[in-house]
């Protein structure tokens, strides 16, 4: 079968299942595809929706920026110093394993309700994969590659820019890909639990008002954006690993 039709077939199958599920569950738990798409349409022309999108996008962008820049800097530092890496490796793994939602009350106490808390929460989700994969990327560079750099008399800055970074880039990029997804997750969770604007806030309000079509529509849009972004980053990742 022509693989070009696979996507279309899959979409039709999902829509059919959705419709079927709607008939079983009823409109109190689920809205039908048609109603949901209508709600999506309403959202896309509503001003308050775009205000909330802007609030989430701003928090997300900042969380991504802090995660990537901070994660890269810390990861490089830990990767280059064997001692620091050995010391921090178990600590990092422990920190990664913590369910970060338990830290949210502390963050709220610290930053108060608003943008800062969301950014902080997005960042503590996004930064760890960047740190860990950058550190591993640098540590996994074969010693002979570093020796070759020394044998060609590179300065430390040249070594960093032209050997260590490109050598570790595939792993760094994987870390960034995961970090961006988790930063989005963190930002949205932050908005869901305590916030006064943003997509997550809008979603939880719709839930409180039992506005099922709106809940479904927002979820669908979030899903579409996350999947599209995820696929684009995964493809870039594969290109980096597979090479030109």
């Amino acid at each position: 079968m022509n693989p070009r039709y696979d996507g279309a077939l899959f979409t039709v199958a999902v829509l059919l299942l959705w419709e079927l599920l709607y008939h079983i569950v009823g409109s109190s738990g689920l809205s039908s595809p048609l109603v949901t798409f209508a709600a999506v349409g309403h959202l896309l022309v509503s001003g308050s929706f775009w205000n909330n999108v802007a609030a989430t996008a701003q928090a997300f962008a900042l969380a991504v920026a802090f995660s990537l820049v901070g994660g890269l800097a810390i990861g490089l530092l830990l990767g280059l110093s064997r001692f620091a890496g050995d010391v921090f490796d178990p600590i990092l793994n422990a920190l990664t394993a913590i369910p970060k939602i338990t830290l949210y009350p502390v963050i709220l106490l610290f930053f108060g309700l608003g943008m800062e808390a969301k950014v902080a929460f997005g960042t503590i989700h996004g930064i760890f994969p960047v740190i860990i994969l950058t550190m591993n990327g640098v540590r996994n560079i074969r010693p002979v590659v570093r020796k070759a750099a020394r044998a060609m008399r590179l300065t430390p800055a040249q070594t960093m820019r032209t050997v260590l970074l490109p050598a570790a880039l595939p792993e760094i990029f994987s870390g960034m890909r995961i970090g961006v997804s988790l930063a989005l997750l963190g930002t949205l969770i932050g908005e869901l639990f305590a916030s006064d604007r943003g997509i997550g806030f809008m979603l939880i309000q719709s839930v409180e008002h039992s506005d099922v079509p709106n809940v479904m529509a927002i979820t669908l849009l979030l899903f579409a954006v996350a999947v599209a972004g995820g696929i684009a980053m995964l493809q870039a990742d594969r290109r980096l690993r597979g090479g030109a």
Binding site: K147, R153, P166, A167, L169
Partner: peptide
């Protein structure tokens, strides 16, 4: 430090894959 004028070829593959 590797002096100027010295070139080294290693036993392992040291080519840069990127």
């Amino acid at each position: 430090e590797v002096p100027d004028g010295v070139g080294m070829v290693f036993q392992e593959d040291a080519s840069f894959p990127w």
